[in-house]
């Protein structure tokens, strides 16, 4: 194994993924077990600058049955569109939740700002989302966009998604002002997942 990149003839093979399995909670979301949580569904503490939002939803399998043993992780910019900004007390941008037995989850955060795309255009506000669960061997990745966001029309990633599936990436506004984002692993409304 060479540790000098200038002489490395071929890259090392990456460690392959395996399923998270059904029994991760006491390590990864251990609140109910008395453990300390690395992160929770509260991504932004009170007082963090930005519009406070709640995103709630349910994860469904191909039979439409709730997935009650999934772990979801979210990653997002702050209200100014910055990742890992220094001095942003109460905000890391990272959320982690286990679904309830009913397949439900909830994220309390602030609406992220627009983020630059590699070509210099801007991406519409979005959260990156990872889905882990029993029966998922390799992490699923998707994005959460927001209904009513004018910037969606020019978003370079949404533009890659067939128009008839784009709605699966857009959280809808509920009567109480919160956002709803359901995840369908299969089926007619199967969520768009990405190869990153």
């Amino acid at each position: 194994m060479s540790t000098d990149p200038q002489t490395a003839e071929a890259p090392l093979g990456i460690t392959p993924s395996q399923t998270i399995g059904p029994f991760f909670a006491y390590a990864l979301t251990p609140c109910a077990y008395g453990g300390s949580e690395l992160a929770t569904g509260t991504v932004a503490a009170e007082g963090v600058a930005g519009e406070r939002i709640r995103i709630a939803g349910t994860v469904y399998d191909g039979d439409g049955a709730p997935v009650g043993d999934a772990m979801l992780e979210t990653w997002q910019a702050d209200a100014q569109g910055r990742y890992n900004a220094v001095g942003n007390a109460g905000f890391t941008g990272f959320g982690r939740v286990e679904t309830t037995v009913e397949g439900a989850f909830q994220i309390e955060t602030i609406r992220p700002g627009p983020v630059a795309a590699p070509d210099g255009t801007m991406q519409a506000p979005h959260l990156s989302l990872s889905v882990f669960a029993r029966g998922i061997l390799t992490r699923l990745t998707t994005r959460i966009y927001f209904e009513g966001e004018a910037a969606n029309a020019a978003d370079p990633v949404l533009a890659l998604v067939p128009a008839d599936r784009r709605h699966t990436l857009i959280a809808t506004r509920e009567a109480d002002g919160s956002f709803r984002f359901d995840i369908h692993l299969q089926g007619q409304d199967e969520t768009v997942f990405f190869a990153a």
Binding site: T19, D61, G62, D63, A65, V67, W75, Q76, A77, Y83, V115, A116, A117, P118, Q123, H126, S128, A133, R134, G135, I136, L137, L140, T141, R143, P156, V157, L160, V161, R165, L185, Q186, E190, T191, V192, F193, F194, A195, A196
Partner: peptide
């Protein structure tokens, strides 16, 4: 467990942005 949980539609190539 993969039978009802593996996506059936092809994955979409995601550009590597700051996100």
């Amino acid at each position: 467990s993969t039978v009802k949980r593996a996506p059936s539609k092809p994955l979409i190539l995601l550009p590597h942005t700051l996100s």
